[in-house]
């Protein structure tokens, strides 16, 4: 079943003459990994933002389980159904790794009783030990921050995992580790994983590869 779908979605930034996305139609299902490839500023991040409910399309509609995002509370939608791994991590830099995860759990309404222990477990799953988890984000390496970002995206147990260039700031070892985590999320936990990337290595783990060219989303291939 499609968990998220886009129907004739267009988007144009304020003050620009050309739309960045034009008439995009796509369907995304659970337990699958999708990669969206394209040149820089092709509109990959914009597409993820629209799916994440961080922005609203200027034309068309985005549906979550058949319901238009225009009809649901987008804050709740983001908090409960979407996990985003941002390219720039977007963590609270003056808080510790563990605080970032616990706060995200509170916001999403996660009912776990011992949120801190649950967060430690999540961080451990992505390779962050307790000592690192208690460091301020600013004092973590890029790889560590990326892992914390993944753990945070998982903290609300979302159906959809969006990753924007998740390995852009990582070395080869870390890149492999993060890709393994993402692949596991789809294969083992049944999540819909959508990754925006221009990395061939990342694209290689996808079930479906889509490309954006001149604002249009085109199906490229099944892997």
């Amino acid at each position: 079943m499609d968990i998220v779908s886009l129907e004739n979605v267009s988007y144009q930034y304020e003050g620009t003459k050309k739309p960045v996305l034009k008439g995009v139609n796509a369907r995304f299902s659970c337990s699958r990994i999708y990669t969206i490839v394209g040149k820089s500023e092709a509109g990959k991040s914009t597409l993820l933002s629209l799916i994440a409910g961080l922005d609203v399309c200027t034309e068309g509609d985005v549906f979550y389980k058949g319901t238009s995002l225009k009809k649901i509370d987008r804050d709740d939608y983001r908090a409960k159904n979407i996990g985003v791994i941002f390219q720039g991590f977007n963590l609270l830099t003056n808080a510790t790794g563990i605080e970032n995860i616990v706060l995200s759990m509170w916001i999403s309404g996660n009912r776990e009783k011992n949120k801190k222990e649950y967060a430690y477990a999540l961080l451990e799953k992505v390779g962050i030990d307790r000592e690192t988890a208690n460091r301020k984000v600013l004092k973590m390496s890029g790889g560590e921050q990326q892992r914390v970002c993944i753990a945070r995206a998982l903290s609300n147990n979302p159906g959809i995992m969006l990753a924007d260039e998740p390995t852009a700031n990582l070395d080869s070892d870390n890149e492999t580790a993060v890709l393994n985590i993402l692949a596991s999320l789809a294969r083992d936990e049944g999540k819909c994983v959508i990754i925006a990337t221009h990395s061939q290595k990342v694209a290689s783990i996808a079930d479906e590869i889509w490309g954006i060219n001149d604002g249009r989303l085109l199906f490229v291939k099944h892997s």
């Binding site: 994440a52 804050d75 983001r78 908090a79 941002f86 609270l92 706060l103 916001i107 999403s108 945070r152």
Partner: peptide, 9 residues
């Protein structure tokens, strides 16, 4: 921005 992106109202 981060808090809002996480879904905080």
């Amino acid at each position: 921005g981060v808090l809002r992106a996480m879904g905080m109202k």
